[in-house]
């Protein structure tokens, strides 16, 4: 058995996963995530990006294949141990910013810290610091419904970063945003990750987003692919003739 590189913080080996109804999710994925890198998992919709992230972060039990985190197996852990691992070492960003609507912004950002048992004062300080860094410090006392969508997404990012996770899983964090918001969110996320040495696994279907990452793993139909050969868009005939500017 080949030993993985020393600086891999998270790796998967021949990961298979099928959904509960039997439809195939992942078919034999092997990849390694190095310490402190930003790894983009790219691929079209339905290629298994979210499933891969859910397997790697221990949200779903892995039946076939292996997932290792810091040289410790994740695939053999029980639900409670995986939950503790998620709480203490991992961060997660949803495509939609699912904040707790009853709590205000800084309480939302401080919630994972409080769940870990950090004191309220320290949790608040850390959350406020990250909210300031993500340009939403002035809205720290608002409820989530008073915020715009991009602001809510930034709160979700602050919530994920405030705990200082070892690995941050971002599942298409910019999918519902416009391009200006998208660039802002991505820039803050990658800058924060690089400055704090946080490993990021970023699922995206967007080539521009993937360009920000250190490395890209392309998925197609639940498999890692090196090259994707898609048919070129055929040149439409008579486009110039139909132009309005004639």
């Amino acid at each position: 058995m080949e030993a993985p590189p020393d600086n891999d913080v998270l790796w998967a080996r021949s990961l298979h996963f099928s959904h509960r109804d039997g439809s195939p999710g992942l078919t034999g994925i092997s990849l390694g995530v190095r310490e402190g890198e930003i790894l983009a998992v790219s691929g079209p919709r339905g290629s298994g990006k979210t499933t891969l992230l859910r397997c790697l972060s221990g949200q779903v039990p892995v039946r076939c294949g292996e997932v290792w985190f810091n040289s410790a197996p994740v695939h053999t852990l029980g639900p409670m141990a995986r939950e503790r691992l998620r709480r203490d070492r991992f961060g997660w960003i949803d495509p939609e910013p699912v904040l707790v609507p009853e709590l205000n912004v800084w309480e939302n950002a401080a919630l994972p810290l409080m769940l870990r048992g950090t004191g309220r004062r320290r949790a608040k300080a850390a959350a406020r610091e990250w909210l300031e860094r993500l340009d939403i410090g002035d809205k720290a006392r608002c409820r989530p419904h008073a915020l715009q969508h991009a602001e809510r997404q930034r709160v979700a990012i602050a919530r994920a970063l405030a705990t200082g996770p070892s690995v941050l899983f971002a599942d298409e964090p910019t999918a519902p945003l416009h391009r200006a918001d998208r660039a802002h969110v991505l820039r803050t996320l990658t800058a924060a990750a690089r400055s704090h040495g946080i490993t990021v696994v970023l699922a995206t279907h967007d080539a521009e987003t993937a360009a920000l990452a250190d490395r890209t793993v392309a998925l197609l139909d639940g498999r890692c692919v090196r090259t994707v050969h898609l048919p070129d868009a055929p040149e439409p005939e008579g486009r110039a003739a139909c132009s309005l500017s004639v």
């Binding site: 939950e83 709480r87 919630l111 769940l115 919530r159």
Partner: peptide
């Protein structure tokens, strides 16, 4: 569900 994804203990 989102809280459980964060790792909040059930």
């Amino acid at each position: 569900a989102a809280l459980l994804r964060l790792g909040a203990p059930a």
